Computed example of a mutant assay.
Amino acid sequence: MVDLQGQQLGNYRLLRLLGRGGFAEVYLGQHIYLNSQAALKVLQIVLNDEDIESFAQEARTLASLTHPHIIRVLDFAVENGTPFLVMEYAARGTLRDRHPQNSRLPSETIVSYVRQVAAALQYAHDQRLIHRDVKPENMLLGSSDQVLLSDFGLALLAPHTLDHSTQEMQSALVGTMPYLAPEQLQGSARPASDQYSLGVVVYEWLSGRKPFSGSPLEVAMQHISVSPPPLREQL
């Protein structure tokens, strides 16, 4: 991927890279006239005219979400065939930053987080929108330490691969393997799939580990056919 730091997209100068995923990069951007800051998600794909309209429709759907626990989409555009979204910038980072891998959280902290994320998911589901990628990395912290769920539906914009080998399985699926519900792994995501993913996050926060481990294929098969180890064995 090409480093875009210092370049301009739309009315934003890209200051630094905030994060990188399988099909997108997120930069901290500063508006060239207003000096306000925002997070710009730049998708690493080139769209044709038909794809651009599909992206625009998806972006309009995301921009219509208005909830105190959902990151706002402020703008979108396509430059030279490359689409990007302008989103509210959450300077305090993610819940993964605050609670690294293998962290165990107090029950009252977990309850507070779950109430906020669950409220955001219920609102989205009422709009007939499924998140598909609920995980701590997509739970940001606002200026008042409130949880803000990000990346609603963005996984739908990921390029699909025809290679279903073990190495490519992670990128071929919409979502993140350790958190995927069985029906989502089988290509039939539904609102309950988000609830399953949130349940995996809670399991991880309580025990300090995810319920399943192994290769992507092994984890997928466990999600589909095996019950997670009882929490009492992990505490």
Rank of each mutant, 00 (worst) to 15 (best):
R190C: 11
A189R: 00
A124K: 09
A91L: 09
R72W: 00
S103R: 06
V78M: 06
N80G: 13
R96G: 00
L40S: 10
F212M: 06
T166Y: 11
H99T: 03
S165C: 10
V201Q: 02
F212P: 08
L129A: 09
Q30C: 12
L40R: 04
S144M: 09
T61I: 15
F84K: 00
H67F: 02
I32A: 12
P100A: 04
Y27N: 00
G208T: 06
Y179Q: 10
A181M: 09
L121R: 05
V73H: 04
M169R: 15
R190V: 13
P228G: 03
H31P: 06
N11E: 15
V226A: 01
S107N: 12
S213D: 13
Q127W: 07
P178G: 14
L173D: 05
E88P: 02
L149D: 02
L65A: 11
A90Y: 06
S225N: 14
L206Q: 11
L43V: 09
L198Y: 04
R96Y: 12
N11H: 15
V78P: 03
Q186E: 14
Q167Y: 15
L105E: 03
M87S: 08
A192E: 14
E108L: 13
L141D: 07
V111Q: 10
L65H: 09
G208E: 09
G19F: 06
L17V: 06
D194N: 14
A77W: 04
S54W: 05
V117D: 00
S197R: 10
V86F: 07
R98G: 06
S54I: 12
E218G: 05
F55Q: 01
